[in-house]
Amino acid sequence: MRRIPLTAWIGLAIIALNLAALLFGPLLAPFGEEDILGGPFDPATALNWFGLDQNGRDMLSRLLFGAQMSIGVSLAASLLSFSVGLPLGFLAALRGGWVDTVLSRLVDTIMCVPVLISALVVLQALGSSLPVLIVTIALLDSTRVFRLARILGQGINVMEYAEAARLRGEGAWWLIRKEILPNAAAPLIAEFGMRFCFTFLFVAGLSFLGLGIQPPYADWGGMVKDNQQGILYGLYAPLYPAAAIALLTIGVNLVVDWLLAGRTRPQGEGR
């Protein structure tokens, strides 16, 4: 096994920290999610390490509770978008012809409306419940996964080893699972890391508009919004959830970089 570089260790540590918050957040939190302990934006004390938020709730506790919502929703949405986008993208690449045309034009149609607007419409119409939120984000995101999977699949499908498998008489399932997927893994992992972070920010953005995770549940994006007026008074309050988002984004990207090191080749190398 090759040596794990320092940056990857940092990334892994950050992810482990967030994973712990995701799994055990509510247990670790010193106070309840909705407990009001003092005045708005009270400064940090020995009990309330990060101080209180705009409603006088403990910032640290809300961050820990929020981990579940924010990370959970993003992870679920990213996984769902990949499980929809990947097979369809590979299938479009493999089959070509009308399958490709129909799927691709459908995706183009969805993509030509800005994601935020599509999401706003759907969430307004169907109400902003958690499952609706996750599925909406996932489906909108899967268009991008589809495009990537399709182009990767097309590139691999013309390789001679894929041709050999087709000439052997292999079906689509084998081709996707054994010939295309393993060879598309590197860029897909990178895309997953990025999609996860984007989804995270997207959820935060929706929360910011009041369409994401609804109060009183804590989520990091919503917490940035709720505490934003603190910035005007030179308070740290909104920086904590913002830092949590940034930290996780950096952590995921550090790990993705490490996973990709040595697995990717610049295009045209070894001509």
């Binding site: 390789m159 001679e160 080893y161 894929a162 498998a165 054994k178 393993p182 060879n183 070894g270």
Partner: peptide, 10 residues
């Protein structure tokens, strides 16, 4: 080209 005729992940 045997390089591209064999799946590098098999």
């Amino acid at each position: 080209l045997p390089d591209v005729a064999l799946n590098p992940r098999q």
